[in-house]
Amino acid sequence: MKVSIFITCLCDAIYPRVGEAMVRLLHRYGIRLHFPEVQTCCGQPAFNSGYWDAARESAQTIIQAFEDSDFVIAPSGSCVGMIHHHYPTLFQNDPAMMKKVNNLIEKTYEFSQFLVHVLGIRDLGATFPYKVTYHPSCHGSRLLGVKDEPYILLSHVKECQLVPLPFAEDCCGFGGTFSVKLSDLSGAMVDEKAEHVLETEAEVLVGLDMACLMNIAGRMKHKGKELRVMHLAELLYEGVTMHG
């Protein structure tokens, strides 16, 4: 059984501890993750900006990397959504590639999806004695349909006080290159998101996509507000190792 990690470029370069948490968490169940080195980025920044040739080249590294994997897991609903939703568009005129794309799609899961649907794990036996709020990232929840999974996992974490985030489903304003192209607008959007997070008085903001979390955390810091921002994998890993 070959289970591979698609680390995603952001977690690779900036948040490797998210990948580390995934590796260590899954190892507890006897899963030894596999990391094919040829992977780079899913290609989304180029795809969403309209540069599809660049996106295709980048996507090819992903398709190649996981050709012989049985399962692929990634710490991002957005990157997995890119594979599921947009790879077929990118390669629609290439039947040989389409076959590979379809093979990749059926084995690729976002982290919380994989835990709940593939492994059938709901309770990891974690304890996390903090007030937590959850931001459902748009691509994970809308493109990929990851809605209940994180709540299922969080609801089984002992001593974790989960508080609802007002306007949770509103975009944080990241949007990839959008945040640079229309930075003032993106700034206004993330400011509102940060305000909503602060309203909850949560000690920890958790999510399934580091891009959105990076955006919100960056705004928090800019405003001088301290708040822990974590990927769900990190929270769960800390929950099973430190607080139990």
Partner: peptide, 11 residues
């Protein structure tokens, strides 16, 4: 980016 947010450094 940094006009509105602090950016994280590469790990």
């Amino acid at each position: 980016w940094t006009a509105h947010r602090t950016a994280p450094a590469l790990a």
